[in-house]
Design a binder for these strands. Structure first.
Length: 773
DNA sequence: CTAACTATTGTTTTT
DNA sequence: CAATAGTTAG
């Protein structure tokens, strides 16, 4: 016991040793907060706290598993097994299953994923006869989601004229109706969406004092990781559960709050001290992860934010190398550079593939990276994006499984009732759907009792429907005696799913079959793994719950040595010796959608902070001059975030002649580039290049000068003038001349021109006012 | 009712 | 450019 305390520094030890009471740990990036949480739990247990009385909410299930393993090493496996540890969603899903009947839900309720929810909303919008261009299902979904996360129920919505007005103002006066219908339909289907898992937990704890008491007594000690990313709904759950004993420890870093878009409220962490009596505050400010260069560069970035807690992250580590900045022509080049650089670094420093991460703002950026890595035979793994369980063929199998567990699950039913095609078309489904709404029953029940209602469905179709229901029922019977693997395998075969793909024969079809096989293997592993656990049986419903709430981080592939590719969001909490942050461009990072308000921009900046602080040894920032976006080559300019890092931490790989603001500053009005002002390509023997960075004032002016969007939508390639070598041109000042050569593309397109009087000049076409003769 | 075709529309970020 | 929603012919 004492031995591990020695592994902590003083700042870390203090919160570990405070057994009772409310406390907040402000933990800077890389300051060892997981270690603190782990040891704190171990310490509590060593002081006689029963594992059953500890609730630990983590950001991913993987983090929970890892912590559990580490705790098990200290206190022993049998003890650690009883800890309640996991994400908000998975912990409270568990709780809700147990208490479901109180809320009128079946304990085998389905968890709708985003796609299920959005499809349902789509259907509702259509049924209500609303204009789908006004009521965009994604917008409606996110609106409903944010209501739920703020605990605004349908009832509360209709009692709040302001909200209704706000929706009416955005031309969606009937949003409330959609909300109501959506909630009703979910309830009818015995389904909860992601937000419901939190909302219904609140409802449960509010409406049933005895339930609240039970869990308050159970969870005497509560720990919350990544507290800065909790939303209001989560905040209230934590508050309610910890209210009795007030043994609450929250850990987080306001500088790493990056989930406002899904309702996270940074005020939860900023105001924590007001929520409990006698809150102790601890700060972990020493960074053990990164070099001085990285830590200080990151500090200089986050300094630009106004909203933040007072905290100075520092490190005793070496200076390390500077952050490399490189500009590439296109996203393809960017990929090639990154892949090449990884290759070189791996050789030079004897690193593993797994020591490298490529981080990007949007999932769409992964493709260019993948292509380049594949060409160089560098193994990689993409995290996030379309997860395995969201692939069509996988969702199809899962939908059958869901349906047999919960026949009321309408989204699952609609998905598979006619796939593989069995002659049940849209018209039939519509009829069934209308009947289901009318009789307030599920479609499945309607089909079961087809003969009792006259639905103008012909005999043949009726037969097909009955066959379908009977097939599902046979699966249900099978599920009573067999394990999840056996059931799933039967489903894949008997439904004709596999056959459908086999007859397709294309490479994609074969890949899909392999995916289904992988799913089945996964189920088998799950069954075997779960059988060893005390509170699990390896049932199909447990598997489905796991799948619904699994993040891409959670599944550990028998980890081969691979370069990691992921969004910055997904990278939170991780660390890598070498980190490449790609796509450092305006409108991409910061995202074009996030530049409207200061708050949004600050969140983007925190995101950049998170990205930078993932790096242990060396960070690379890359951006392109033009990049393919929805199939078109679009001009790009460097992200303002590069500018925000103090130059002394940066090492530009490219001459700065074309650096974004340079042409504006160093080019005279006639477009002549002044070469004397070029920045040095590389600092000589480590001396930082002289800073020619424009002042903030200059930048602001420049940004104003720069049109917000492409001025000429047709030609997005910069200069309107089309020139080729050999053209005769006339320049305002230099007179007549002949084009020798054209260089660069887009904004940076230059022409080398031999003037009759002025000799050879290189002009930026963007500025040079040339007339073709 | 199915399958093949055409049109549209979208890129933040995730449990 | 992709994926998917919607349309149309058989």
């Amino acid at each position: 016991m004492e031995s591990y305390l020695a592994e902590l520094n003083e700042a870390q030890r203090a919160p570990v040793l405070q057994k009772d009471g409310a406390m907040i740990v402000i933990a800077g990036a890389g300051s060892g907060k997981t270690r603190v949480l782990t040891y704190r739990i171990a310490y509590l247990m060593s002081k006689g706290v029963d594992a059953f009385n500890i609730l630990s909410l983590t950001f991913t299930n993987k983090a929970a598993r890892e912590m559990k393993t580490r705790i098990a090493k200290i206190v022993g496996n049998s003890e650690a097994k009883n800890l309640w540890m996991g994400t908000f969603h998975s912990i409270f899903a568990k709780m809700l299953r147990f208490e479901a009947d109180k809320l009128g839900y079946p304990s085998n309720f389905t968890i709708y994923d985003t796609q299920d929810s959005q499809r349902l909303i789509s259907a509702i919008i259509k049924e209500m006869g609303l204009d789908k261009d006004v009521y965009k299902y994604k917008q409606v979904y996110s609106r409903i989601s944010s209501y739920k996360n703020s605990l605004i129920t349908v009832k509360a919505y209709f009692q709040n004229p302001e909200l209704q007005e706000a929706d009416a103002m955005s031309k969606k006066p009937r949003l409330g109706e959609i909300y109501k219908e959506y909630v009703d339909r979910c309830f009818k289907a015995g389904a909860m969406d992601f937000d419901d898992l939190l909302l219904k937990t609140n409802e449960l704890l509010n409406r049933f004092p005895e339930v609240l008491q039970k869990y308050q007594n159970r969870f005497r000690y509560i720990l919350v990781d990544e507290y800065q990313d909790t939303n209001h709904s989560q905040y209230l759950i934590v508050k309610a559960l910890s209210d009795k004993f007030q043994n609450i420890c929250v850990v987080g870093d306001d500088a790493q709050s990056i989930y406002a878009f899904r309702g996270a409220n940074i005020n939860n962490i900023l105001n924590f001290q007001k929520d409990y009596d006698d809150v102790k505050m601890y700060r972990l400010e020493q960074n053990y992860r990164s070099t001085k260069n990285i830590v200080e560069a990151a500090n200089s970035v986050i300094d630009k934010n106004k909203t933040k807690l007072d905290k100075v992250v520092w490190t005793a580590n070496d200076d390390g190398s500077k952050i490399v900045v490189n500009r590439l022509l296109t996203d393809g080049e960017e990929g090639r550079f990154v892949a090449g650089s990884i290759f070189e670094n791996r050789m030079e420093h004897q690193m593993m593939n797994g020591d490298f991460a490529i981080l990007y703002r949007t999932n769409a950026q992964s493709r260019a990276m993948e292509d380049a890595l594949r060409k160089k035979d560098i193994p990689y793994r993409i995290y996030g994006g379309l997860s395995f369980y969201q692939r069509k063929e996988i969702k199809d199998v899962l939908s059958y499984l869901r349906l047999l567990i919960n026949p009321k699950d309408e989204e699952a039913l609609k998905r598979v009732i006619n796939y593989p095609a069995r002659g049940i078309g849209q018209t039939t489904i519509d009829k069934l759907s209308i009947a289901a709404n009318h009789y307030k029953r599920s479609i499945f029940e309607i089909i079961e009792h087809l003969d009792k209602i006259d639905l103008k469905i012909n005999r043949g179709t009726k037969n097909k429907l009955e066959n379908f229901v009977n097939m599902i029922k046979s699966f249900q019977i099978l599920n009573q005696t067999e394990d999840a693997f056996m059931v799933a395998e039967t489903v894949a075969k008997k439904t004709g799913l596999l056959q459908e793909l086999k007859k397709d024969g294309t490479p994609e079809g074969i890949a899909r079959i392999e995916n289904i096989e992988e799913l089945l293997n996964g189920i088998r592993d799950f069954v075997e793994g779960q059988k060893e656990l005390a509170d699990a049986t390896g049932s199909l419903s447990e598997f489905l719950e796991d799948v619904a709430l699994a993040t891409d981080m959670d599944k550990d592939t028998g980890d081969e040595d691979r370069v990691a590719l992921m969004t910055i969001h997904l990278a939170k909490g991780l660390e890598f010796p070498f980190v490449y942050i790609v796509g450092m461009e305006e409108d991409l990072f910061p995202s074009a959608m996030s530049m409207n308000t200061r708050t949004e921009l600050e969140e983007e900046r925190r995101l950049f902070y998170v990205a930078l602080t993932r790096a242990e040894k060396k960070a690379y920032l890359t951006y392109t001059q033009s990049r393919y976006r929805w199939g078109k080559l679009v001009d790009a300019e460097p992200s303002r975030f590069i500018e925000e890092i103090d130059d002394k931490f940066l090492d530009y790989m490219i001459p700065q002649e074309d650096y974004r603001y340079k042409p504006l500053i160093d080019t005279d009005i006639f477009g002549e580039v002044d070469k004397s002002k070029f920045r040095q390509t590389k600092p000589v023997n480590g001396t930082p290049p002289p800073s020619h960075k424009p002042t903030d004032e200059q930048l602001r002016k420049l940004r104003k000068l720069r049109p917000a969007t492409t001025p000429e939508p047709v030609k997005d390639n910069g200069p309107s003038i089309k020139l080729k070598a050999g053209d005769e041109v006339e320049h305002m000042r230099f007179g007549k001349g002949k084009v020798l050569q054209i260089d660069g593309i887009g904004q940076d397109k230059k022409a080398e021109i031999e003037f009759e009087k002025g000799g050879i000049k290189k002009l930026l076409l963007k500025f040079a006012k040339l007339k073709v003769l």
